[in-house]
Every structure is written in structure tokens, then in C-alpha cells.
């Protein structure tokens, strides 16, 4: 029994288990179990929390940028089902979400921004606000199309995660991979069951907040090049491509899996090219 426990504990220290298998499993279980309550979108936050639990903690005594990101993700997941209830005034709601996300990004990074010159504050601040606002607007358009939303989550998570890893932060990299695993679990369930899962803002809002904060954190706190941020926006943009309506759900899943994976590789390849790891 003790030996078995030791093996499990050893597994839990493995980064692949922490960010990959554990988050995938958590997302799969939550997406399946809560699908009957229209809350399967909580798979994103479940995957993220599983990874946070294994590599960090939920102690918010010292509110660092990383802790603020975790807190913002949790709050977004709590508020998202309420936002789902507002079905009318879609555009107004989208604007509200974009403004809220912009406020959150400034709150999270203000401790670092305030030490910069005013010109840098304006450049960095407006860049971060533009990035998270665009991301939230693009993802909010996918609330009713869960294959598109799930493939965006997988592509964004993978791209941000691998880019963060290459930019010297394994922690942020693992956060990104956890989100990719949530997207992958969501896609897999839809592919296997050949049935759409409900996603809604329960899925897209935590996704917007987390991807909208993890990537800037990798840029400001680690060495992610700034041009990766607009390139990450290509992923939810590609996921908006309308596919022929007569295509089966499985075909759509495969197609979006491929499309978002290709677009997610662009920033990664550019970082690898710049760092000399890979020559284009």
C-alpha cells in the first residue's frame, strides 16, 4: 500500500501529470458530469485548478501577479453562469465583459506597470487592454458553438503554454497546457458522443480571463516576445471560420482541431526561430 502511494506521489510531481493528465482527467469528469446541468463549461476552470493544486497552491496571503491570475480565473468561473442567464442584449454584454476583462488586466499588472515611465505605462497598458478585450470579444462569439470554443481553448492553451515554456516560465507554461487539456477533453467528449456539449460563457469567460492574463504574464514576468500576443488572437479568429453545415460533428471536430493546432504553432515557431532552437 505504501509503495503504491509512493508511486502515485511520484507521479504527482511529474510535470506531464501535473499539467497534462491530471487537468485532462479533471476536465473530462467535470464536462461529462455537469453536462446535464448545462455547466460542463466549468471544465476549463476544473483543469486549471487541478494544475494549480499540483504545482502551486490556493493561498492568497501574498497577492502576487500569479495569485491574482488564479483568483481572477476563479471569480470568472463563479460569475460566468450568471452571465449566461443574460441572453438578451448580447452586444451590451460583450462590451461589458471586454471592459471588465480590461479592468482585470490592469489590476493584475498594475504593481509592475506603476514602476515604469508614463510612456511605457501607456504603451504596455493599452497593449494589454487591447489584447484581452479582443480575446474576450472573439471568444464570446463562440459561446453557442462548443466545438469552436473547445478548439480555441485547446489551441490557445497549447500555444500560450509552449510559448511560455520557451520564454523561461515553466509555471505559466503548465497553466497554459492545463487549459489546452480542458479544450482537448471537451473536443474528445464531443467527438466520441457525436453530440454537442453545452459551453456558454461558463466555458468562454474563464478561458478569456485565464488566456488573457497568462500570456501577458509570460511577456512581462518572463521573456515572451510582445508580438506573440496578437498572434494568439489568430487562434479564436480561425475558430470562427464557418464550415459546411452538412459536415458531421465529428468532421467539424477534426477540422477545427487541425486548424487551431496549425494557428497555435505560429507563435511557437517564431519564438523557436528567434531563440535559434529552430531555423525556418
Amino acid at each position: 500500500m505504501q509503495e503504491w502511494l509512493n508511486v502515485v506521489l511520484e507521479w504527482m510531481d511529474n510535470p506531464i501529470i501535473q499539467a497534462g493528465a491530471a487537468s485532462f482527467l479533471a476536465a473530462l469528469i467535470v464536462a461529462k458530469l455537469l453536462s446535464y446541468m448545462w455547466l460542463s463549461g466549468l471544465a476549463v476552470i476544473a483543469a486549471f485548478c487541478a494544475t494549480v493544486y499540483l504545482i502551486s497552491d490556493f493561498n492568497f496571503d501574498s497577492l502576487t501577479i500569479i495569485k491574482k491570475i488564479i483568483l481572477a480565473g476563479l471569480v470568472a468561473a463563479i460569475l460566468a453562469p450568471l452571465f449566461d442567464l443574460v441572453s438578451s442584449h448580447v452586444r451590451l454584454m460583450r462590451c461589458f465583459i471586454a471592459i471588465a476583462c480590461a479592468s482585470v488586466v490592469l489590476w493584475v499588472f498594475w504593481s509592475v506597470l506603476e514602476r515604469k515611465d508614463w510612456s511605457d505605462i501607456v504603451v504596455y497598458g493599452s497593449g494589454l487592454v487591447a489584447y484581452i478585450a479582443c480575446l474576450s470579444l472573439l471568444l464570446d462569439r463562440l459561446t453557442s458553438t462548443s466545438v469552436h470554443a473547445a478548439s480555441s481553448a485547446m489551441g490557445l492553451g497549447a500555444s500560450i503554454g509552449v510559448s511560455a515554456l520557451l520564454s523561461a516560465s515553466a509555471l505559466l507554461g503548465q497553466f497554459g497546457i492545463a487549459i489546452a487539456m480542458a479544450g482537448a477533453a471537451y473536443l474528445l467528449l464531443q467527438f466520441v458522443s457525436n453530440r454537442l456539449l453545452p459551453s456558454g460563457r461558463t466555458f468562454t469567460l474563464p478561458l478569456s480571463v485565464l488566456c488573457g492574463l497568462i500570456a501577458p504574464a509570460a511577456m512581462i514576468l518572463a521573456k515572451l516576445p510582445w508580438y506573440c500576443l496578437p498572434l494568439f488572437l489568430l487562434i479564436p479568429l480561425v475558430a470562427q471560420i464557418p464550415l459546411p453545415e452538412n459536415w458531421s460533428l465529428r468532421w467539424q471536430t477534426v477540422m477545427f482541431f487541425i486548424l487551431t493546432l496549425i494557428s497555435s504553432a505560429i507563435p511557437v515557431l517564431l519564438i523557436m526561430h528567434e531563440s535559434g532552437v529552430y531555423s525556418i
Binding site: T64, S111, V112, A168, A170, L171, A217, I220, L221
Partner: peptide
């Protein structure tokens, strides 16, 4: 990597 938020979090 040691300067990143994983360890020293030198920017923050």
C-alpha cells in the same frame, strides 16, 4: 528561468 515567476519573480 530562475528570474521568472517560477522562482525569483525578479520583475515583480
Amino acid at each position: 528561468h530562475l528570474r521568472s515567476p517560477d522562482f525569483m519573480n525578479a520583475v515583480e
